[in-house]
Design a protein around this nucleic acid. Structure first.
Lengths: 270, 270
DNA sequence: GTAATAGTGTCTCTGAGACATTATATA
DNA sequence: TATATAATGTCTCAGAGACACTATTAC
């Protein structure tokens, strides 16, 4: 069964003489968009983790955390690794979004980036942006690692028309303050989330195990960027949630909400 | 406004000293799944263009046409180029599907592949697999180009449970006859098509300008892999199609069908 | 005429949206 | 008791599915 090619080589022999370095090729990175929910205001907002660039190009602009794909790891694994480096967390929802391949998108050299979307419950993020952070190799000066951690921050997101607005306690950003094509990446992720929220259960990846209906509804409203009708929302969610025996202690006045949890169901494969 | 980094370099100076070759990185290819419709049988079938591998690895197996992404072209452009090399056609529907990044997926070297889906009306394919075909560089022996063209073929697709079946007049293939992870790529593309057909107008990219309702319905049935209810289908499609003044000449007996065309509408941006 | 395929009209039932009402906490 | 918030019940209307019926060709 040993098949031979036009030069009479077996697969073994062919692979031994194969030289992948003959052609110059692009670099590949993963960019991981890490989302959580900001519950500090009446209306919830999605939040994204951004890092401030310490190096050219886009020096001092804000960027989606990313890094090169190593030779010994799959692209998925690189995204998992990147997520763990940023948040210290494993077993987080992670989904490939899109691959960005325009020639001029990085002025240094030709870089193709695979973007991923991660959804993290706020409750899991104890020391915000805790854990070590490694930047893309080759651009971080040795010994400059410690200061860098202060330069990651969560930004709440909203949209004015087509344009993104990002803010937190200390800063406000426009799209111009984002590095590379990262504004487009974020917009695509928000669109994807808007669509998926209808026919999948990804919202629950942003919530703790126990949550109330008002919490769930406000999260939906934040993602969809529109108000929902309470009773109908409750009815439609019944397929995914079940009531627990515990009540929530109300913040101000009013009837306390029941805690719910996601129905135990087969995880859908996609 | 000239900002300087930790070493005191401006962006200009930084880019001049930046050396992308310091780190080894994976190769990147595009794989373009080119679909059309097989109308030769009572029930239509989707068809895909496959090429027979002339070289290790997977010598003599069938593969999705692909090629390396050049340093001077975007990933999208590489897919367009690849499609034109295979079919001789431009201005064809092309959509990025997924990026495949497992470490061992190509035994030669580390290769990351971005898969695209192209939808071509059968009517545009005059000389089947016409046009020159360039294979991935570095694996084609010089002067072996002419024989290669006979080794591209259209295969009709069906599914038995989770497994693909492919066939044409001269051959039948199982998943084992496909190279690399290309069976998974095809399955993912079929799933994507099934979903998109509900809320987009991509089906029309598989049809000529004029088509009849029976044609349209059978195409939907081929993609969805289920029979549809004629009158309801007709009603639901009214939003997308309009009647012309021409009738189709019936093949055997029966009432002749009207030709329809897609409604002129703003192309939706995604 | 008959067989075969294309196309229309209409009934029913489900499900989404809107609104009115009840329940349970705090002050 | 007043007020604020949570949760339930029900009415209506549009859209999906099913079916019966009409129309136009070939033979």
């Amino acid at each position: 069964m040993e098949e031979r090619n036009a030069q009479g080589l077996t697969e073994q022999e062919f692979l031994r003489q194969y030289n992948p370095g003959k052609y110059e090729h692009p670099s590949v990175t993963v960019d991981t968009l890490i989302f959580t929910v900001d519950k500090s205001t009446e209306d919830y907002h999605l939040q994204i983790l951004l890092v401030r660039r310490q190096e050219h190009p886009f020096l001092n602009k804000w960027a989606i955390p990313g890094g090169f794909v190593g030779m010994e790891e799959s692209v998925d694994q690189a995204a998992v690794r990147e997520l763990e480096e940023e948040t210290g967390l494993r077993n987080i929802y992670l989904e490939q979004l899109y691959t960005w391949g325009d020639v001029g998108r990085d002025p240094r050299t030709r870089i193709i980036s695979v973007s991923y979307m991660a959804l993290v419950p706020k409750e899991l993020l104890t020391s915000v942006t805790g854990g070590c952070r490694r930047d893309v190799p080759g651009e971080k000066p040795p010994g400059a690692g410690s200061k860098e951690e202060a330069n990651a921050a969560w930004y709440s997101i909203s949209r004015q028309g087509d344009r993104l607005r990002l803010w937190n306690e200390s800063r406000k950003l426009q799209e111009e303050d984002l590095a590379f094509d990262h504004a487009r990446m974020i917009r695509l992720a928000l669109e994807r989330m808007k669509n998926k929220v209808f026919y999948t259960d990804i919202v629950f990846r942003l919530l703790p195990e126990r949550f109330t209906f008002p919490e769930l509804q406000r999260l939906y409203e934040a993602i969809l960027e529109e108000k929902l009708h309470g009773p109908n929302f409750r009815r439609d969610m019944q397929k995914w949630v079940e009531q627990t025996q515990e009540k929530c202690k109300p913040q101000r006045a009013g009837k306390p909400a029941w805690y719910y949890r996601q129905k135990t169901q087969e995880r859908r494969k996609i």
